[in-house]
Every structure is written in structure tokens, then in C-alpha cells.
Design a protein around this nucleic acid. Sequence first.
DNA 1: ACCTGAACACCGTTCAAGT
DNA 2: ACCTGAACACCGTTCAAGT
Lengths: 191, 191
Amino acid sequence: MTAMSTGEKLVDAAAALLDAGGDAAVTLRAVAQAVSVSHNAPYRHFVDRASLLGSVAERDFRTFSATFDEISQSDRTPIGKVKAALESFITYGEKHPARYRLLFSDPDIASRGGSLETAAMETFAKFSALIAGGQTAGQLPNLPTAALTGLIYAAVHGLLDLRAGGRMRQEKGFSNVLAGTTLLLDLISPR
Amino acid sequence: MTAMSTGEKLVDAAAALLDAGGDAAVTLRAVAQAVSVSHNAPYRHFVDRASLLGSVAERDFRTFSATFDEISQSDRTPIGKVKAALESFITYGEKHPARYRLLFSDPDIASRGGSLETAAMETFAKFSALIAGGQTAGQLPNLPTAALTGLIYAAVHGLLDLRAGGRMRQEKGFSNVLAGTTLLLDLISPR
DNA sequence: ACCTGAACACCGTTCAAGT
DNA sequence: ACCTGAACACCGTTCAAGT
């Protein structure tokens, strides 16, 4: 077990605080206290709060990329791979709503560029490749892959965001995201 | 022209600040200053900051309800009414992204209950009625209306939220929300 | 190179008064 | 009924030192 650097510990603590109390709970003071350093020690590792959160996001994007790689190399059917990817996405969104929003909704995170943007684009590209596989197998409609990927991604994101925002109760059609996603895939799959 | 009450002026100012600088720009001090009252005068009209934002949201939900009423009574085709409603939704989301997120993403707003929740449910019900009309006319798939409404609503919300979050660039499939919405309706419409 | 304590400006909220 | 000024606790950030 290699010793975690202070920087890694801070990222860990920030992620845990996001899970426990949402964005507002991630104060630099609370993060520092969780790691037992002074309230401004984080500035020796991150230029500001947004940068710390950016590191949390980047780490999770890399985890997604690794998961999509595993799915890609599994022995599932093409459409089964798409569904597995969506399920990992949904599980993450339901288990870590605040982190989900950090990665996929927060405007400050999207505009940071650099290695974070690279990691985010890589995740998206791997998902898009799975969609393309489903199209080649004739299990998804024959549209430009980018448009189809964007639409599926947006729909699932919408379901997850409505859930994270507490607005799922009203959409009485389905009380969980997976049901909505399944319905979408059924509706658009070639008949 | 009836004089606006201080409370109404505060709601106006908060909405303008949301448009101008996003959620973080809506400090009670800035709102108060815009109305030329002291920094804690808002507390004579709203119990706290969240309550003020709740009033902004409620007002916009009522505007949506009125718009959907107009659309319902227009001489458009059933599917034309659905598209008109979606367009009004999209226009609002693109013109007022911070207010859009307040109404449709913010967890604090969703859990406030009371007249705000009533207004939000009314808006949703009116939209759902337009969807039902499209189904009766055979221009939308024959599913439980609630499920179909939820799915269309979630997909458009996803597109708008990705745009508001600065993540539309990556979804190269369509650079605007209307194109994505149109694609969805094409894909799911009965063939 | 990494950390600490003091300090600053800003914010939501409360309180004691004022008209 | 509505408003004001002072005050409090909290937060992000900066700075001058310390090892």
C-alpha cells in the first residue's frame, strides 16, 4: 500500500464530501479538516476550489473510460454493450448525484479545458464507439453516429438530472431512470 | 400602470441578476441594491434567499402555463401544438439558462412544495395534455401518456441542460437543441 | 517543497431600533 | 407594516512566516 499524497487525499475528501452533502458541503475548510491539514493547505496543491473539483471530475472520467474499455472487450452483444455502458452511467448518477452533476452539468467544470477536457472527450468517444457497434449490428437506427450518440446521451442525462433534481416524482411514467432508458431504446430501435 | 410592490421589484431584480450573472450573482445584497433598499430589506418580503428564488421560479412556471394554454387554443395540428410547446421551452432555456436550471434542475426549488409545486405540476399537466392530443391524432406513439410525456420532457431537458452546462460542443451530432428535439420526434413517431 | 496562522473581502442571516 | 445599521458566523483567498 503506497502512501497517498496529500493532493490525492484532498481529492478523495472532496469526493466524499460531495457524496455526503452536495456541492455546498465541499468547503476548502472541510476538505482540509478531513485530511488534517490547515484550512489553506489545499492551496499548495490546487490553485483554487474549482481546480480541486476539476481533479475530482477528471478522476471519475478516467474511471468511466476504463469501465467502457472493459465493456468493449467483454463478450456481450453490441446492443448489450450499449446497455451495459448506460447502466454504469445510471448507477453512477444515482449513487453519486452531486459528482454526476459536477461531471456532466457544472458549467465551471466544462470550461476548464486541459487534461480534464481531454479525459471527458475520451469518455465520450468510447461511449460513441459502443453506439457505432450497435449500429453496425443493425440494432440501432442508421443515423450519423454522432447525432445518435448525442441524442441517447442527452435523453439519459435528462432522466438522471431530473432525478438528481428531485423532479422524477412528477414524471409518473417511470419512477426510475433505467425504465425510461429502456423505453427510449425500444422506441428508436429498428423495427 | 400600477406601482410595483417592493416584493415584486425584488423578484424582478433577482430574475435579471440570474440572467446577467447566473446563480452566484444573485446575492441578497445585489438584489437589494438593484431595488435601492438596504441589504436586509428582502427579509421583510421573503423568509430567506431560497424563498426569493422560489418566487422567481413560480412566476415563470405560471408564464409557461399561460403559454401552453394559448398553444392549446390555437389552430395548430396536434403535433404542431406539441412542437410549439417544445419550442417555447427551448427558447426559454436558451435565453435564460440560469432561470431554466432554477425551474427544472435545482434541488432546493423542487423540495419547496406549496404554491410553487402546484404551479410546476400545472405546467407539466398542460404539457402532458398536448402530448395526449398528439397521441389521439396518431402522430405520437401509443404508450401510456405519462411515460411518453416523461421521456420527451427528459430528452429535451437533457439537451437543454447539456447546452446550459457548456457540453453541447462535444455532441457534434447537433449544435442546437431544436435539431436534437426534431430528431427525437422523427425517431419515435409512428411509421 | 510544503505547511501554518492571521487577515481581508464577501455573504446569508439575525437583532435591536426606528417610521 | 416596512425599513435600517450593526453584528455574527462562515467562506474563498492572500500573505508573511516558518520547517
